[in-house]
Design a protein around this nucleic acid. Structure first.
Length: 511
RNA sequence: GAGGCUGUAGCUCAGGUGGUAGAGCAACGGACUUUUAAUCCGUAGGUCCGGGGUUCGAGUCCCCGCAGCCUCACCA
């Protein structure tokens, strides 16, 4: 069709498959398959092994097994003259097919000659053992379900190049051991989170992802433009401010589980779009959310079918509850070796670390020291409690100490996994904090962007509440042994593939 | 944005100090009715990421660029 007489080896491989496709059509088979009725998952078929019976015949003892219909992808093929062994796999398991020329007849045998690694096929026959004891389907009928026109990766090593694994994730799922399982675990984790919140009486909602003010966090947003309205819009960087509006609106337990977008760097722990859970509970506080966090993490852990001790890289994470709780200042003193109340001493440490101290708020300096010296030591799981109020513009202060905010973060392996507050519901203080945060900062870098409608909402009365955010991707990393966030995101952001780029396994995208 | 590492057949990889590019898998042809990463015989397959440069000669050395990974920066 669009293939000129190219003689590259990749073309030769594709041509061979195209020729077989043609042959399949000529033989009267539909190379693109059709609905299958009565097909069983391979896992279930394997479980039928016990139904195989030995019967006596004039020729001796023979096996008699159930008739089954299976479908799957051809992973391996062994040809032995007029006999072909084909290993097919679906997402429940793998099984061997035995195709014999005498047993299947001409038309099916001719079809079998046109099969390649990677094709999707269906086979129907008797479930029995081969001479060497391998559970197999002794094929009577054979269909092709989908002809693979591209050659699959190497059959024992699969794909190893991380770039190819991410760009061709469908192949990664098929051929890299553990990838399918990891993403299924991710789904199980997300389901467990939903189940836990639903059981606790929460409602799930969907807030806007296109916003005129991207608030609720200190991150650079992606910008876009609405043509009909003629206004700039931003992709959300947090779920917070709209969920709190819903608290005002009377949704007393509310959560959203969805994507947020941050226009920042990419690293093994950062992807520009990631999945966040935020949950708000009226008449709770950050202690309420601490209990909830522990419950959610344990539910997620259980959903992955693991015990309390999880291997992650060289480390073992012990999720045995209750998780350790320690205050920000305690941990600061312990790991930074400085009295957190001694501003001069803290500034000195900061300077030693190369953290600028000129004209900066002491709490900001202190927090950067914390991030530098304390966070990497927090192998956790550990709840860090009571942050300096000045770095928490959306958080209620402690009743007996306005310098301290009722906030905690959960750290595991030096990673911030959860962040929670007793939510600030005083509209005047909230407005004031927005303004002081804004003072002298370009709007892009403000820690909290002024959102007048949000302040107005607070003026109508928001119940005191606990609020929680959990980074679902990071939690999934920790619970599935993934050391890069790209291993738990199906399609992480990559630079676009250039036409003709040498790293492309298959046809480059059309120009 | 900075630094380090990597890029060789469709895939997985090898190619000391510069001398006209190799293996396994996959493909193609042949043998084989109980294989298990099947085996055996044979054939074909290359923009060595791209572009410059040094050299009689570059996969190899130098410069510029592209992409990926890692570290850092950014990041409540």
């Amino acid at each position: 069709m669009n293939t000129p007489s190219s003689s590259s080896p990749a073309e030769a491989l594709r041509r061979s498959r195209r020729e077989k496709l043609q042959r399949i059509v000529e033989l009267g088979h539909d190379p693109w398959g059709h609905r299958l009725q009565g097909r069983l998952p391979i896992g279930e078929i394997r479980a039928m092994e016990s139904q195989i019976q030995k019967v006596s015949t004039p020729e001796g003892e023979e096996e008699q097994g159930p008739k089954v219909l299976a479908a799957g992808r051809i992973m391996l093929q062994r040809k032995a003259g007029k006999l072909i062994f084909i290993d097919i796999r679906d997402w429940t398991g793998k099984i061997q097919l035995l195709v014999g020329k005498r047993q299947v007849g001409e038309k099916h045998w001719a079809l079998a000659q046109c099969l390649d690694l990677g094709d999707l096929i269906a086979a129907q026959g008797e479930l029995k053992h081969t001479r060497t004891g391998e559970l197999s389907i002794f094929v009577k009928n054979l269909w092709i379900m989908s002809k693979a026109l591209e050659p699959p990766p190497e059959k024992h090593h699969g794909l190893t190049d991380p770039e190819l694994r991410q760009r061709l994730r469908y192949l990664d799922l098929i051929y890299t051991p553990g990838v399918m399982e990891r993403f299924q675990r991710r789904t199980a984790i997300v389901k467990a989170i939903r189940r836990t919140l639903d059981q606790r009486g929460y409602v799930e909602v969907e807030g806007p992802t296109l916003q005129t003010i991207a608030g609720g966090a200190a991150a650079r947003p992606f910008e876009t433009f609405h043509n009909a309205l003629g206004i700039p819009l931003y992709l959300r960087i947090a779920l917070e401010l709209h969920l709190k509006r819903l608290l005002v609106g009377g949704m007393e337990r509310v959560y959203e589980l969805g994507r947020v977008y941050r226009n920042e760097g990419i690293s093994p722990r950062h992807n520009p779009e990631f999945t966040m859970l935020e949950a708000y509970e009226a008449y709770g506080d950050y202690h309420t959310m601490m209990d909830l966090t522990e419950q959610l993490v344990l539910a997620a852990l259980e959903a992955t079918g693991q015990g309390p001790k999880v291997q992650w890289g060289d480390a073992v994470i012990d999720f045995t509850p209750p998780f350790q709780r320690a205050t920000y200042d305690e941990l600061f003193a312990q790991h930074a070796g400085v009295d957190p109340g001694d501003e001069a001493a803290v500034a000195q440490v900061a300077q030693r670390l190369g953290i600028p101290t000129q004209d900066r708020h002491p709490d900001v300096i202190k927090n950067e020291v914390f991030e530098e010296l304390v966070e990497p030591k927090l192998t956790g799981p550990v709840f860090v409690l009571d942050y300096p109020a000045s770095i928490c513009p959306l958080t209620k202060r402690k009743r007996d100490n306005p310098q301290v905010a009722e906030r905690f973060e959960l750290f595991i392996q030096g990673m911030e996994v959860a962040n929670a507050y007793t939510e600030l519901n005083d509209p005047d203080l909230q407005e004031q904090l927005f303004r002081t945060q804004l003072a002298g900062l370009p709007p892009e870098e403000s820690m909290a962007r002024m959102d007048h409608d949000f302040i107005r909402a607070l003026r109508y009365g928001m119940p005191p509440a606990g609020g929680l955010g959990i980074g679902v991707d990071r939690l999934t990393m920790l619970l599935t042994g993934a050391e890069s966030i790209r291993e738990v995101i199906l399609f992480p952001l990559l630079r676009p593939e250039k036409p003709g780029q040498a790293t492309s396994a298959a046809n480059p995208p059309e120009a």
